[in-house]
Write a protein that binds this DNA or RNA. Structure first.
Lengths: 336, 336
DNA sequence: TTGTACGCGTTATCAG
DNA sequence: CTGATAACGCGTACAA
């Protein structure tokens, strides 16, 4: 049903090659036939078939991006940056969320067959799968996930932010007993945050933090906090691996009439849009999500188009934003 | 560089057709050669090329989805539902955000060339462009946008929700002067919400609401609210076209020491994740975003696979969630 | 049971 | 300047 170059050629009374020449502006065509061809193209509303082009040109003009999930503003930020760069460079974007599906390895292999390069985020598949894929020749960039062999990776700084956060909480507010909400095994970022918090406390000779293992959604944080409230004594401060967990903790505290930060301080991570509107405003660590997508796309495009090796490690800076949930009375950053 | 069916055939010492037969389980192959072929496939790590398959099968095995933008939890909800259905049905998902780009018409035509069907959301391109595209034969589903000719559309209910919202605000709280934040020209949903509010007020013989024209982001709401605060008298209640606008209004009110809902009531729309955690908890209208994506994908798949005409109009129910920003003292829904 | 040959839509090459 | 033809990778009639 769709109109092909063949149809145009027949309609204009010329050869396929001539239509192609006009279409792509390559080679010599007499003004007269050119006009005839262009008119035929317009009348038939001919659009070159992408699949034919891909097959002949050995190029998909598409980039893939693999997420573990989609929920939350973190992912939309990354996607926004990635899509923007890709489309500007003339590529389509194919998305895939693994959702911890058992067949995700197959799905990713499929994806690799329809794109010129792909970005893989965090714990989407095993290192082995990534290595195999990379060895097969397709350009790959890792996102929020450590580099494997020499596959480039782009991520946010976590350890120094943890250091700054803990320094403030212990130094300015005098907290000693910390708990960390999150599951380091589920995400490389969470792992780094947890380790950063641990070493920052050790460096100050403070007690080791307690790990409250929970997933990454609001409900998970709420449940974990309710469990915690059953104890006789609360920690001084709850460090949450992301803002959604912190919001869940807020719910649990509100429903149990516990006041933040008077009875327990809370901090988040990512600094999503509404952190300054919740009650109390949430102290969090700002991540440059959109830039993360930007840089990942640019790195990938460099690999594809120039066949030049991009930097293996790109680390984007994070920044702690102090608000009132940590015990501060104003929203401004502290003078250190 | 990638290994093709040709390579496998040569390696196994059989014809291309035989490899294809084994690969797709169609036709008769002797157990012996089958084993040889399978071993070759494994050893060479052969993965059928999607482009070749697409060209020969006249099928992309991909769906497209076009957003005006990506920001915010509303879009990620829709995307989540859509991607899930598509992948389950064996399709890849190609995303595109128009961002009011001037070349969006071309970008969408491009997209149409690499998918089997596409969903177009809200005000991404003109009705004419959509009609042309549909006439060219590609299955299209409209999302949060009225049906054009007989192109199926999926959307959320708005007018009845507006009626319920206004009924509560005027009936229970006695508000009379309303202002509506948003730009009805930018989105069909906003248009319906605005019209719904207008007629609900008219039906009650209350003064016409004032339209405060602003875009859809938090900053826009904040700016518009600051302008409003310069007046001598505020309206009784500010109805925001989405939650982000409402959050912006919150910021403006907080910075100017105005109390919600005592000095002015505020409501949002969409009911994103943190509406119950802001101060005060935001009264909003819950939209089934994920289901929106689900149903859109299913409708599209019906059109593609069964060549059967799906329902032209699918309207999913919305639900008002009453919290404290409208003047209620508890978070539970009112008894009407 | 297996192999040959063609078509899908495009671009590139080569001969005229 | 133009047209015929090969090639990309795959599936599938058709022939052996």
């Amino acid at each position: 049903m769709p109109v092909t170059i063949k149809d145009v050629a027949k309609f204009a009374g010329v050869s396929i090659a001539t239509v192609s020449r006009v279409q792509n502006g390559i080679g010599q065509v007499s003004p007269e036939t050119k006009k005839r061809v262009l008119s035929a193209i317009r009348q038939l509303n001919y659009i070159p078939n992408k699949v034919g082009q891909a097959l002949q040109g050995q190029r998909h003009a598409a980039l893939g991006i693999v997420f573990p999930d989609f929920s939350g503003p973190y992912y939309s930020g990354v996607m926004l940056g990635f899509e923007n760069q890709a489309v500007t460079a003339g590529y389509s974007v194919v998305v895939l969320a693994t959702h911890r599906r058992p067949e995700s390895t197959r799905l990713i292999a499929d994806l690799a067959g329809r794109v010129d390069g792909m970005v893989m985020m965090d714990r989407t598949v095993s290192n082995d799968t990534v290595s195999n894929l990379a060895r097969s020749g397709i350009p790959i960039v890792l996102l929020a996930r450590p580099s494997i062999t020499d596959i480039p990776c782009v991520r946010c700084e976590n350890r120094q932010a943890a250091e700054e956060l803990v320094g403030h909480l212990s130094g300015k507010h005098g907290y000693r007993k910390f708990a960390f909400f999150g599951n380091p095994d589920l995400s490389f970022d969470v792992m780094e945050r947890w380790q950063g918090v641990q070493s920052a406390l050790r460096r100050r000779q403070l007690p080791d933090p307690e790990l409250i293992r929970c997933e990454y959604r609001q409900d998970d944080g709420k449940r974990a906090a309710i469990d915690l409230l059953a104890r006789e004594q609360l920690p001084d401060c709850l460090l949450c691996a992301n803002d959604e967990l912190a919001f869940g903790v807020y719910q649990a505290m509100r429903e149990n009439d516990k006041r933040i930060p008077q009875e327990v301080a809370v901090t988040g991570w990512d600094d999503v849009l509404t952190t300054d509107l919740v009650d109390p405003p949430l102290t969090s660590v700002k991540q440059p999500t959109q830039q993360l997508g930007d840089v990942a796309a640019q790195t990938l495009l460099t690999m594809i188009e120039q066949a030049v090796k991009p930097p293996v490690n790109t680390v984007l800076p994070s920044r702690v934003v102090f608000r009132q949930s940590c015990g501060c009375t104003t929203d401004s950053p502290p003078n250190r």
